[in-house]
């Protein structure tokens, strides 16, 4: 464990909690892409199947359980409890355009052609593009609630910190995983436009509104 991975995980946890609290407190999922949340739930499900088969540490197990529970709770709130506030008209990204290439890539480019390995690879590739429906929805509505931008900021920050974690692990532990690094780079690059808007607008107290 290193400081980048720890702060990365805490940033990820913060994002997940912020989103859950936003929906719960405001009793509304306006501006939130349910499709992205379903993809994240799928990412955690396919990545944490080893939850019961291999014990790495209490931290690892506890965080995985929290991530999975929060992901499904968020999906339930969006499509169940507060579905009346779900903005389906703007959450129209065709996720099959993500799932099909990700499945093909996971089958073609992986470290081992074994079920657990392919599922892990699928989850890594899927996570790198899972935010696209959310970013697409914001571009369609032309704006985002400030709390939603904080959610996105911490979510984008987490994988950015993981990139530093991988540099650290390569340098100090001689450890390197090209699949995770490339997918992490793609994931972080997708946030660059948002990071720019967040830093130049939201941090200056303005509302995030895209030039329509």
């Amino acid at each position: 464990m290193n400081i980048f991975r720890l702060t990365g995980d805490l940033s990820h946890l913060a994002a997940i909690i912020i989103l859950l609290l936003k929906i719960w407190k405001t009793r509304s999922c306006a501006g939130i892409s349910g499709k992205s949340q379903i993809l994240f739930a799928l990412v955690f499900t396919t990545r944490y199947l080893d939850l019961f088969s291999s014990f790495i540490s209490l931290y690892n197990t506890v965080m995985k359980v929290i991530y999975i529970m929060c992901a499904y709770a968020t999906v339930y709130l969006i499509y169940g409890k507060f579905k009346a506030t779900y903005d389906g008209n703007h959450d129209t990204f065709r996720v099959e355009f993500l799932l099909i290439p990700v499945v093909l890539l996971a089958v073609l480019i992986n470290h081992a052609f074994a079920p657990m390995e392919i599922l892990w690879t699928f989850s890594i590739y899927l996570e790198s593009v899972a935010i696209l429906p959310q970013l697409f929805m914001i571009s369609k509505t032309g704006e985002a609630e400030t709390i939603t931008t904080h959610y996105l900021f911490f979510l984008g920050l987490y994988r950015t910190l993981y990139l530093f974690n991988w540099i650290w692990r390569f340098y100090f532990e001689g450890f390197f995983d090209l699949i995770a690094v490339v997918a992490g780079l793609v994931q972080t690059i997708l946030y660059c436009d948002f990071f720019y808007l967040y830093i130049t607008k939201v941090l200056k107290g303005k509302k995030l509104s895209l030039p329509a």
Partner: peptide, 10 residues
């Protein structure tokens, strides 16, 4: 072996 080390990440 590098693979299993990654698996300690979330």
């Amino acid at each position: 072996q590098g693979r299993t080390k990654l698996k300690d990440e979330l």
